[in-house]
Design a protein around this nucleic acid. Structure first.
Length: 560
RNA sequence: UGGGGUAUAGCCAAGUUGGUAAGGCAGCGGGUUUUGAUCCCGUUAUUCCCAGGUUCGAGUCCUGGUACCCCAGCCA
């Protein structure tokens, strides 16, 4: 993995050019501006990596600013989760956390300034009338009858709005721009609306709240942001962003640049939809390991580094795109392959009795923690007469391609001895309940001697001691949706129609090697030959619980 | 329908005075291997949405099309 230098993208090129031209005295200031109305997801991670990454590589600063102008949808819980997620990803904002609501006094003054310049007016049209007067794509808008109010009247009315003397919906403050503009956001955009709601930061101080389009450019300017990076859907808003900066008395002139948002197949990245999944119980919580939220990925076992390298690998451009989930999986495999300690865990246990192993004999076998990294040391694995292997690793008969245990043939127990299956025991239904084996005591750490006529060892399988292994629960996850684009539905359908009903599989009879006793939540392992797993927060000493992060890459079909 | 955008491999994505198509993911072939993993080596666009044009030379310039995305919240 070369993490040495960030790849070229159009935004970095713009910054390079700005720096070369000496703009902003060489300062680079960005910001990550979430609205606290939901949990952060993988799409936000892209924005976070972009904004903080740029600040980092240009010796600049990146602010965390909550865009909290709509008290109806926002909550303190979200603020905390967002701060936690950003830090978990490995980033630290410059100075204190900012809130757009910190600037409400200043914003109010600037709005008054606009009124005084004749650039804003109080409109008393109803919400329905405002929509009607705005026109549409084909029809130009028409001026509100209130558009010509005098400065004095507007000042008085705006003050009445602020003082709570008007009801919600009775009046709004609008910019006076151009009702005929082909760009709908320029048709006298609303600056302030009345909302008699308690705000999570400002309490009941305000009953009027500024709109995003007015607040954002000003917050950027107030904070000295130089490059304001947002997603493509805000592109049409840029002329108004510039209008606000140009027509208010602020100290800086930030510039907005837009990039394509991240889409991942087989999932959704929309706060509204993710919230719906939680609220309607399709998943357990925002941090359900199937969710593409930062907290869900974290609980699933993703590392901050893997999410960062993923974001770097998808790049930044202006083309709408859908990234394959396989890219995310590749990023975590790459990280965990290098760093996760190995362990053996049997998911679907099948008992194996080694008949020539003395009844009470126990051996402690030495195994590396990581076969490719000696520095990670070794671990001890107990070997006893009875062990468990995975049901899928045994067959009564199979062709040569089956590299596992077959009746009459040999296989190596990983880090242990070579065993031969000599017999099977079945229950009344004919299901295999036990395999009888013999072992070769001369095969620890070396291959069998005098092997003529025996054929090649079929392979190596993992196992655990029946008497020493720890019981555990393993949760395996499949994609949350059945279709690559869950948003594409039939007539009148919902994305919920595409939910995968089998996205969670709980295996509660699993057995893991005893060395994992007492492991802490979020510890990650590779269970050899199975995949990468992470200890769930609900795990206890009595009942270990693991989440499967991702399986190992498989070049052989699981079922044939 | 008016406006704003975007088109380079199955998926992302470099390509900046026009000079002969990076890289990653996935795939395929081979080697190593006590994980069917990892690792290693090789391979995958005669062509850049289409059609014309300019030029010795075009993914890059010009003209005309086509497809897809975004905008009609007192959401962000």
């Amino acid at each position: 993995m070369s993490e040495t230098k960030a790849p070229s993208n159009f935004i970095r090129q713009i910054i390079d050019r700005d720096l070369a031209e000496g703009k902003n005295d060489g300062r680079v200031v960005t910001r990550f501006p979430p609205e606290p109305n939901g949990y952060l997801h993988i799409g936000h991670a892209k924005s976070i990596c972009l904004n903080f990454g740029i600040a980092e590589s240009y010796n600049g600063n990146c602010n965390l600013r909550f865009d909290d102008t709509n008290p109806e949808k926002e909550e303190e819980e979200y603020i905390q989760s967002i701060e936690r997620d950003v830090q978990w990803l490995g980033f630290q904002w410059s100075g204190d956390v900012r809130f757009a609501s910190n600037y409400f006094d200043r914003l109010y003054e600037l709005a008054v300034g606009l009124i005084k310049k004749g650039l804003a007016y109080v409109d008393s049209l109803s919400p329905e009338q405002i929509a009607e007067y705005r026109g549409n794509f084909t029809t130009p808008g028409k001026d509100s009858p209130y558009r010509g109010r005098s400065v004095e009247e507007n000042l008085a009315l705006f003050e009445k709005m602020r003082a709570g003397e008007l009801d919600e919906g009775e009046a709004v403050l609008r910019a006076r721009i151009d009702m005929q503009s082909p760009n709908l956001t320029l048709r006298d955009p609303i600056l302030y609306r009345i909302r008699k709601k308690v705000h999570h930061q400002t309490g009941d101080k305000w009953v009027i709240y500024p709109m995003y389009d007015f607040t954002h450019p000003l917050s950027d300017a107030i904070e000295g942001v130089t490059h304001s990076l947002c997603t493509l859907e805000f592109e049409e808003h840029r002329p108004f962003y510039d209008w606000v900066v140009a027509n208010t008395d602020v100290e800086a002139a930030p510039r907005q640049y837009e990039f394509a948002r991240l889409n991942l197949n087989y999932t959704v990245t929309s706060k509204r939809k993710l919230k719906q999944l939680v609220d309607e119980g399709h998943v357990q919580s925002w941090d359900d390991p199937r969710m593409p939220t930062i907290s869900g990925l974290r609980r699933r076992g993703y590392t901050p580094a893997s999410i960062r390298t993923f974001c770097e690998s998808v790049g930044v451009s202006r083309a709408d795109s859908v990234v394959d989930m396989g890219m995310l999986e590749a990023a975590i495999r790459d990280d965990l392959n290098q760093h996760a300690p190995r362990a053996m865990c049997v998911l679907n246990p099948l008992k194996v009795v080694i008949e020539n192993w003395p009844e009470d004999h126990e051996e402690s076998l030495t195994a590396p923690v990581h076969p490719q990294n000696e520095a990670m040391g070794t671990r001890q694995v107990p070997m006893t007469r009875e062990v468990y292997i995975d049901r899928e690793d045994f067959r009564e008969e199979a062709n040569k391609k089956f590299k596992r245990l077959v009746l009459g043939d040999r296989v190596r127990l990983r880090y242990g001895y070579v065993v031969r299956a000599t017999d099977v025991v079945k229950d009344a239904d004919g299901d295999i309940v036990e395999v009888r084996c013999s072992y070769d005591p001369e095969t620890l750490g070396k291959n069998p001697e005098n092997d003529e006529g025996q054929g090649k060892l079929r392979g190596v399988i993992h196992w655990v001691s029946a008497s020493k292994a720890l019981p555990c629960e393993v949760r395996q996850y499949d994609r949350l949706f059945l279709t690559a684009n869950p948003n594409k539905t039939g007539e009148g359908g919902s994305f919920l129609d595409n939910i995968n009903p089998d996205s969670l599989r709980v295996l509660d009879q699993c057995l893991v090697e005893p060395g994992l006793r007492g492991v802490l939540a979020e510890t990650r392992y590779q269970f050899e030959r199975e995949g990468y797993f992470c200890v769930d927060p609900s795990s206890t000493d009595d009942k270990l619980v693991f989440n499967q992060t991702v399986g190992l890459r498989e070049s052989w079909p699981r079922q044939d």
